[in-house]
């Protein structure tokens, strides 16, 4: 561990909810990243006791209105390692049919004295409208195509840890590094949160993918758009591959899997144009050999599993900050 334990420093945090990277300042992002290492250490304790008593007696509800496996597990594990009680709730179109609104569902959860609501929802803004009118701490675990803030935070943390290890500089930051996101930008909340987060941390973002999956005027969010993968990979410190959903092809957004692979797959061929030590990242789950070649995903440059481990630590940091510094419920 490089930096002094955070408990010896003054933590500046007042935010009650984590709704999106858009709301966060660079300082707030760095506070999360600086708080995460102690929680990463919890998982590696020699004693094997991977738990701290920071949220004892608190109730964290994992409310997933859209299927998810890894994000749900990651949040649940993070809450458990903080000693919170956890409930998992899956809702779907069926409860909409029953006629219960988002507000009613949350009111019911809050009536059970929930402290933290972790919401995954297929509609952009769902956590925002709940946070505006309810008392619990709301964490956005992905809202439609809009934001997935904890993913962007864990990605930034992963990149920063790697930079610090590689350079030996415990203060190394993302300033000036080049990150290229490849794939379906249009439908990706991971891309949106990462564009915002990386910009706030001083990194340069390049987006690459089919024009049909590139959102309107995305350059204005602070990114370079490039349709030639080789050009996009040139000089990249990080190559971030995004999941491509097969149904996009069926909806006519690109001609064929074959052509997608030819133009946009991150593999040995295309990576010849990137620096040799470029990191390979992916938010999971991977379509092996579609957007990312299997041997690259499993290769020495890949930090994909580190992203998963770091995800738990970063989510622990977020919950700790929101509840213990972001004001009482």
């Amino acid at each position: 561990m490089s930096a002094a334990p955070h408990t010896e420093r003054e933590i500046q945090w007042t935010r009650r909810h984590l709704l999106g990277i858009a709301d966060l300042s660079r300082e707030e992002i760095e506070t999360v990243l600086d708080t995460a290492p102690q929680f990463a250490a919890v998982a590696k304790r020699k004693s094997g006791i991977k738990k701290v008593p920071l949220l004892t007696g608190r109730l964290a509800v994992n409310w997933f209105h859209e299927p998810s496996t890894r994000t749900r597990l990651s949040f649940e594990l993070a809450a458990k390692r903080l000693s919170a009680d956890t409930l998992a709730m899956t809702t779907s179109a069926s409860s909409v049919v029953k006629g219960e609104t988002l507000h009613d569902t949350l009111a019911n959860i809050e009536a059970m004295q929930a402290d933290i609501i972790i919401l995954r929802h297929d509609c952009a803004g769902a956590p925002h409208i709940l946070a505006a009118s309810h008392t619990s701490h709301v964490i956005n675990a992905g809202d439609g195509r809009h934001e997935h803030p904890t993913q962007a935070l864990l990605d930034a943390f992963t990149i920063r840890e790697h930079l610090r290890r590689k350079t030996g500089n415990p203060e190394a930051s993302l300033d000036g590094i080049k990150v290229t996101l490849v794939g379906d930008i249009e439908h990706s909340r991971v891309a949106r949160s990462n564009i915002l987060c990386l910009n706030k941390l001083g990194a340069q973002v390049t987006l690459c993918g089919p024009a049909t999956l590139m959102p309107a005027r995305v350059e204005e969010m602070g990114a370079r758009v490039c349709y030639d993968l080789r050009e996009a990979l040139r000089g990249a410190d990080v190559v971030y591959s995004l999941r491509i959903q097969l149904e996009r092809q069926q909806h006519g957004l690109f001609p064929s899997i074959r052509e997608y692979i030819r133009l946009f797959r991150v593999d040995h061929d295309s990576l010849r144009h990137a620096p040799e030590d470029a990191l390979i990242m992916h938010p999971g789950p991977i379509n092996r050999d579609l957007e990312l070649a299997a041997d690259i995903a499993d290769g020495p440059r890949s930090v994909i599993l580190e992203q998963v481990s770091n995800g738990v630590a970063v989510r622990m940091a977020v919950m700790h900050l929101l509840v213990n510094y972001g004001g009482a419920v």
Partner: peptide, 15 residues
Amino acid sequence: HEGYWSTVLGIPGMP
């Protein structure tokens, strides 16, 4: 409306 804000908000746009 499809434009800068639909992209930022991740809401499908109407050009």
